[in-house]
Design a protein around this nucleic acid. Structure first.
Length: 584
RNA sequence: GGUCCCGUCGUCUAGUCAGGUCUAGGACACCAGGUUUUCAUCCUGGUAACGCGGGUUCGAAUCCCGCCGGGAUCACCA
């Protein structure tokens, strides 16, 4: 029966990229709908014209699609999937319940206002903002909270007459009873009438307030279950009051616990600005020129103009004022100048950081929910995919306690997925999708040098924690030989000490290596193997000197892979340079 | 401050609704050891929690009360 079908919704305001907390809300709404063979709808709440933007709305659609959270009713959307490899088409309005942008629904609300006005449940109010502020202040000085109430001798007819000519808002007159929310997570929560005021349902400009719009929209769209963050719990009695006044059904509510930073603060977009500010202060930087100076050469052309969008005065003002924030691009440019990794807050941040959507959703699902299932070996089942969620998720196992976002655990999930679950081919596809969006140099390998790309995949995957991490581990293959600097510690340990010294070994190796053919990982590895036996020395004796010569550090993938990625000619050149530089 | 929500290892949690099988299990992190050409893996072991105080009961992580602590919210923003 159609009426019994579960319908959930996610209704973000488009004020920026999708926040990680919003992603979890969306995921739970989606999973609940899938579990119950219902529908999941997406509505964009863009009535706040000042803060909303078309771009942000698009970004949110893109973020959701990337996460694999697809909506049945909502804005039409085709994701290019970064590369167009996996275009996803979602949305549409098969039930004829749109539009899904709230700003386009303005006229829908009028009959509902009329209904309430006629019933005398809604009433015009003429208080100015100044008057309201004064009333609040008065209440505060008397140490009681301010509750707006319609006057006892209120004359409805007179007010309607006055409303014809004077600017006014519409308020809902709250019935004199407590309101109980039957929450699927928290149980029964009762709000006393003394706390419920006659709140605004239509603003002076004629637009409905958020409370009114959600209730009407949810009802008209057939929403049966509202899953949202616990910050909305206090709004719920208002929504129920509107439903009661309008004679609309009350959906089932489930308020889920909030997600916080490890330090207990709220996860917010401000965290990135805060981190950048602290880093600039600690570096003792006071001028924009200093920042530009520290920009890595590789990205200078792109980032410098962004940094030039503010001057030293702006910088000083920003550093001094905790409230003051830089733009998204500016913060990111500052971070690059300081080689600082910004905390990931939005879905887009995690995408850029090289997390897989499946992994991110898995981790997110565990924040406030748990399947409560054991594996055969007695450990808790906590690794699962979308399909598992879609068939196992329900509100009865949503927890009540707020949780902190533990990046270490997310990173462990990510590493486990990449290293133990994916095969090279799947990893290669995902890595390329990522590179197309975030790393041109890497993407060009995939397109221009298939052999080398495959070696890169084989070298990077077994040791990568994220897609970005995989790229970082191969950084040595992207640099110029002349720009290599040698780490002091490994140089001392592996090149300068011992008898013969590492440098001597390296010099001998240089000649031998020149004869390797073909230049492939397997051939190189077996050659080096044979070399160690011939000279009866441990692999460590040649591996570390070679690593330092090729990468400047003592860390790299296996030698076969490392040498192949660098290339034969460059390998020899780097050994020469290392010998020349360190043998003085 | 009012109202509301929450309180199990450092973190996410299982166990709580239907009190005993809990000398509280798992995962991440951390520590120690082992394997390994570095890194990363992998293997073995270890540290570590029922916020506090009362009550009910033969028996409380689980039920009740108080306290303490954390959080949300108090707009013509959503």
């Amino acid at each position: 029966m159609a009426q019994d079908q579960v319908i959930t919704r996610f209704a973000p305001s488009p004020t920026g990229h999708l926040h990680i907390g919003g992603a979890r809300t969306a995921l739970f709404c989606w999973a609940f709908a899938r579990k119950h063979d219902g529908r999941f709808l997406l509505r964009i709440e863009d009535t706040d014209q000042a803060r909303s933007s078309e771009d942000a709305a698009k970004g949110i659609l893109e973020d959701l699609a990337w996460l694999g959270i697809t909506w049945d009713d909502g804005p039409d959307f085709t994701s290019d999937g970064g590369t167009g490899v996996t275009p996803v088409r979602v949305g549409g309005d098969p039930r004829n319940i749109g539009p899904f942008y709230q700003s386009q629904r303005h006229d829908i609300y009028n009959p509902y206002f009329e209904q309430l006005l006629d019933a005398g449940v809604a009433f015009p109010a003429f208080d100015t903002p100044e008057q309201l502020t004064a009333m609040r202040k008065a209440a505060e000085s008397e140490k009681r909270s301010f509750i707006y109430r319609r006057a006892a001798d209120f004359d409805h007819a007179a007010a309607l007459e006055r409303a014809k000519t004077e600017p006014h808002v519409l308020r809902l007159h709250m019935p004199d009873t407590a309101i109980t929310v039957h929450d699927q997570v928290l149980g029964e929560v009762t709000f006393p009438h003394a706390e419920l005021d006659d709140f605004v349902i239509r603003k002076t400009d004629g637009y409905p307030t958020y409370h009114f719009a959600v209730v009407v929209d949810d009802a008209r769209m057939g929403v049966t279950h509202v899953l949202r963050g616990q910050e909305h719990l206090n709004n719920t009695p208002k929504h129920i009051a509107i439903q009661n006044a309008l004679g609309l059904p009350t959906p089932a509510y489930a308020h889920m616990p909030l997600i916080f930073n490890p330090d207990g603060t709220k996860m917010s977009k401000r965290d990135k600005d805060k981190a950048a500010k602290i880093a600039v202060k600690e570096a003792g930087i006071t001028t924009v020129a200093e920042l530009i100076d520290r920009l890595p050469q590789s990205n200078r052309a792109h980032q410098e103009p962004i940094l030039r969008t503010f001057n030293d005065t702006d910088l000083a003002a920003w550093l001094k004022d905790k409230q003051r924030q830089l733009g998204r691009d500016q913060v990111s440019a500052v971070a690059q100048a300081l080689d600082l990794t910004l905390p990931e807050i939005d879905v887009e941040d995690f995408r850029a950081a090289g997390y897989l959507p499946e992994t991110l959703c898995n981790f997110l699902a565990l924040l406030g929910w748990n399947p409560g299932i054991k594996n055969a070996d007695g450990t808790d089942l906590e690794r699962f995919d979308h399909a598992f969620l879609a068939s196992n998720f329900d509100t009865d196992r949503i927890g009540k306690t707020q949780s902190k976002f533990d990046r270490d655990k997310l990173l462990a999930f990510s590493a486990d997925t990449i290293q133990h679950t994916l095969d090279d081919a799947t990893f290669a596809t995902l890595w390329l999708e990522w590179a197309e969006r975030f790393d041109e140099a890497l993407a060009s390998w995939a397109h221009n040098d298939t052999t080398r790309w495959q070696v890169a995949v084989a070298a990077a995957r077994p040791r990568a924690k994220t897609l970005r991490d995989a790229r970082t581990a191969l950084a040595f293959a992207f640099i110029e030989t002349d720009s290599i600097t040698y780490d002091e510690k490994p140089v001392n340990k592996f090149l300068l000490k011992g008898e013969p010294t590492g440098l001597d070994t390296l010099a001998d190796l240089r000649t031998a290596i020149a004869s390797i053919d073909p230049w492939t990982p397997d051939a190189i590895d077996s050659f080096l193997q044979a070399y160690t036996q011939e000279h009866s020395i441990g692999m460590g004796k040649i591996a570390q000197p070679l690593r330092i010569a090729l990468t400047g550090t003592g860390v790299s993938p296996g030698l076969g892979h490392t040498l192949t990625l660098v290339g034969k000619e460059t390998t020899l050149a780097r050994i020469d340079r290392c010998l020349n530089t360190l043998r003085q």
